[in-house]
């Protein structure tokens, strides 16, 4: 499956909906979207990965790059993910300590609200 990307604003958060496979071929599109959002002033990003069925280290690199960009503006990039096969790659690489990972968009919004 190819990669489908969408995004919408929810209060202070920009929610990025990702569906399909994030790999060396498709990751540049996600990178472009994250860069574009940051350039347009969206510094608090929530990437919903519930419909992602494949993620490799190239995809991780794009997410890390996005995190670096938003942090340069005191922003945040957090993830929604409950799929074990996707979470496993975050655990293997130690990135569970770098990203906030939530079980649902509502849970992330609630946590984000508390941090305001």
């Amino acid at each position: 499956m190819d990669l489908k990307l969408d995004h919408h604003q929810d209060d202070r958060l920009t929610i990025v909906e990702v569906e399909g496979e994030i790999d060396v071929y498709t990751a540049p599109r996600l990178r472009e979207l994250l860069i574009d959002l940051v350039n347009k002033g969206s510094y608090h990003l929530l990437v919903n990965m519930e419909k992602v069925d494949f993620l490799d280290s190239t995809g991780l690199g794009v997410l890390v790059g996005g995190l670096k960009r938003v942090r340069a503006h005191d922003g945040s990039l957090e993830l929604v993910c409950t799929q074990e096969r996707i979470l496993k790659i975050f655990r293997i690489t130690g990135l569970t300590k770098v990203f906030g990972i939530y079980a649902s968009v509502d849970e992330a919004k609630e946590a984000h609200g508390r941090d305001k």
């Binding site: 690199g61 794009v62 890390v64 670096k68 293997i92 770098v98």
Partner: peptide, 23 residues
């Protein structure tokens, strides 16, 4: 050690190998 600042967002070959080793 994980150093966010040193990680490239285009190619993380060390991560790739680490992932393979973990899988």
């Amino acid at each position: 050690p994980l150093d966010l600042g040193a990680l490239s967002d285009s190619f993380m070959s060390g991560f790739g190998i680490a992932v393979i080793a973990g899988l």
